[in-house]
Simulated scan of single mutants.
Amino acid sequence: MISAAVLRAVASLTRARAAHTAPLAVRCFSHAKVETDEEFDSRWVTYFSKPDLDAWELRKGMNTLIGYDLVPEPKILASALRACRRLDDLASAIRILEAVKDKSGPHQEIYPYVIQELGPTLQELGISTPEELGIHTV
Rank of each mutant, 00 (worst) to 15 (best):
M1R: 13
M1A: 15
I2R: 13
S3D: 14
A4R: 14
L7E: 13
V10D: 08
A11G: 14
S12V: 07
S12K: 12
L13T: 05
T14K: 11
A16T: 08
R17P: 00
R17H: 03
T21P: 04
A25W: 02
A25C: 02
C28P: 01
F29D: 13
H31Q: 14
H31C: 12
A32Y: 06
A32W: 00
K33M: 12
V34D: 04
E38I: 03
E39A: 10
E39D: 09
E39S: 02
R43A: 11
R43S: 10
V45N: 09
T46N: 08
Y47T: 04
Y47R: 09
S49D: 12
L53R: 00
D54G: 05
A55R: 14
L58H: 05
R59P: 03
K60T: 13
M62A: 05
L65T: 07
Y68A: 03
D69M: 07
D69S: 09
L70F: 09
P74V: 08
K75R: 15
K75A: 04
A78R: 07
A78W: 06
A78G: 14
S79K: 01
A80E: 01
R86F: 06
L87Q: 05
D89I: 07
A91W: 02
S92I: 03
S92N: 12
I94C: 01
I94D: 01
R95K: 14
I96K: 02
L97T: 02
V100N: 08
K101Q: 11
K101C: 04
K101F: 06
P106D: 13
P106M: 11
H107R: 15
H107Y: 14
E109V: 10
I110G: 03
Y111R: 04
P112E: 06
V114L: 07
I115F: 01
L118Y: 05
L118G: 02
G119P: 00
P120M: 09
T121C: 15
T121A: 13
Q123F: 12
L125G: 02
G126K: 07
G126R: 06
G126A: 03
I127K: 07
I127L: 11
S128P: 07
P130M: 04
E132T: 00
E132M: 10
L133I: 05
G134Q: 05
V138W: 11
